[in-house]
Design a protein around this nucleic acid. Structure first.
Length: 440
RNA sequence: GGUCCCAUCGUCUAAUGGUUAGGACAUCACCCUUUCACGGUGGUAAUAUGGGUUCGAAUCCCGUUGGGAUCACCA
């Protein structure tokens, strides 16, 4: 049994969007490929912004996508553990108290920037005297805490970026505890990864500098540093990561009729050197996962391309894969699916065959003539050819002029499945009325 | 501004110093279908820019331009 373990750690402060989903997917696929475990961790250290509603939607989306988890944790339930670690690190001098107000910090940053200096924390707090601290406390100030980075080179071998190096001196000591005593993301995340035995962390490249400081946190905890993979961030069509991209949720895509496997196939292959094509199960996607094939440039996410892929995927869906959610039998499905963009459009064709349709009459002479020539039932798949042959002979029309008016009258649609198959399903009674311009 | 990353057809990318710069998606044309769609075949289409290094550069080096990330008491 593999000891590989990955996690997806969303903060329940918003819905699942395309970027989130991609991160979850790559983690899941990696665990699947290596026979490891996938855990869900709710990063709800920010009590104000975390909402149960978001959490529910995240779970629901993951389940729908098929990204199931076998273990779960919640940061808000682990504060005792975080406090314990913090106490130890304070004693070791790796965590220190600071008394600057947010305004003072903001001022320092601006001043550094205006002098052309990097806005790195100046560690003034390390030189406080007892008197300074007493004075701050007397003023009613409460401390926040930072993690002290050790000078020197920080490096790791990234599964997508190769060797990554940072100089600790060029990084700010991250604030890990707020003035109100609550934890910020950095340290709890590391403690959890350490405690739960996470072996690989796959996340967006917006985390690379966080990783640099977190590497030192893992070391301070005395743990092994997990293996990292930082995925290039997705951008929008126009170049910049647009609001639209940020708001493009799994729930919305699902509501639009996009298949879960379309989303997974698309996100797993976008930005890689492999063709973006439909995969019908996560296992086969996992088999092909290779972090080395992920490019380092930022791919553009285009919803249109996702829709194209979805259409292609739907065309390849067998009856067995959809029978639980559609009307109609296998013959019907096979006849209709090459015309579908989304599975639920099958219902449109089902209702065209079995419910009331208001026909569109384009060529009254032709359609009423065709109505007269309609043969008696029973009908089969050859009926169409025989009938249309007669209509053609008598009207002298052929090609589009012949077919389009018939299609519009019988289905009220501009395009669709082969009429040869549809006609017997519609039946003589409805066909006759529709050809005469009556709703039926 | 510091640090880090990136730049090849419209899009995702391949080509680890010598290729007619390849593939996939999209697009276009043709074929199939007595219509559309589906399907099949084929075509158009790219190395951001300026310097080097080299017999030879998409590839290595430097500059320029452009894009992105980060530098939060968000995660």
């Amino acid at each position: 049994m593999s000891n590989i373990k990955v996690r997806f750690a969303p903060s329940p402060t918003g819905f699942m969007h395309i970027g989130n989903t991609r991160t979850a997917l790559f983690n899941w696929l990696w665990a699947k490929k290596l026979g490891g475990k996938f855990m869900l961790r709710i990063d709800d250290t920010d009590k104000l912004r975390s909402k149960k509603e978001y959490e529910d939607v995240i779970r629901d989306n993951l389940t729908w996508l098929g990204l199931t988890w076998t273990e779960e944790a919640r940061q808000s339930a682990r504060f005792d553990r975080y406090n314990e670690v913090t106490k130890k690190l304070k004693a070791e001098g790796r965590i220190y108290a600071c008394y600057e107000t947010p305004e003072e910090l903001e001022f320092k940053r601006k001043r550094a920037l205006s002098k052309g200096l990097p806005p790195i924390y100046d560690r003034q707090a390390l030189s406080y005297t007892q008197e300074d601290i007493a004075r701050f406390e007397a003023e009613g100030r409460r401390p926040h805490y930072r993690f002290k980075l050790l000078p020197g080179e920080i490096k790791w071998n990234d599964m997508v970026r190769g060797e990554v190096k940072y100089e600790a001196e060029k990084l700010s000591d991250p604030i890990i505890i707020r003035e109100d005593g609550s934890f910020l993301y950095h340290l709890p995340s590391v403690i959890d990864d350490f405690d739960f035995g996470i072996t690989h962390i796959v996340r967006g490249e917006d985390h690379v500098t966080n990783t640099a400081s977190q590497v030192q946190m893992f070391e301070a905890l005395g743990g092994t540093v997990p293996t990292f993979a930082h995925l290039p961030l997705l951008t929008g069509k126009e170049g910049k990561l647009s609001k639209r991209l940020g708001s493009m949720g799994v729930s919305e895509l699902r509501a639009e009729g996009i298949e879960a496997m379309s989303i997974c196939s698309f996100l797993a292959k976008l930005g890689t050197s492999e063709a973006i094509e439909p995969y019908y199960d996560l296992q086969s996607l996992a088999d092909t996962l290779d972090f080395g094939k992920i490019g380092r440039a930022q791919p553009k996410f285009d919803e249109e391309e996702l829709k194209h892929l979805n259409t292609k995927l739907v065309h390849g869906l067998s009856y067995n894969q959809v029978k639980n959610r559609i009307e109609g039998d296998e013959t019907f499905w096979d006849a209709v699916r090459p015309n579908l963009s989304i599975v639920s459009d099958v219902n449109l064709w089902d209702s065209i065959c079995h419910k009331v349709v208001t026909p569109v009459i384009e060529d009254k002479d032709l359609t009423s003539m065709a109505a007269d020539l309609l043969p008696p039932e029973p009908w089969n798949s050859e009926t169409w050819n025989q009938w249309v042959g007669e209509v053609k002979a008598k009207s002298g029309k052929s090609g589009k002029a012949l077919f389009h008016p018939l299609r519009k009258a019988l289905t009220a649609q501009d395009n669709g499945p082969e009429l040869k198959i549809l006609l017997p399903l519609i039946g003589r009674e409805k066909a006759l009325k529709r050809l005469l311009g009556q709703a039926a």
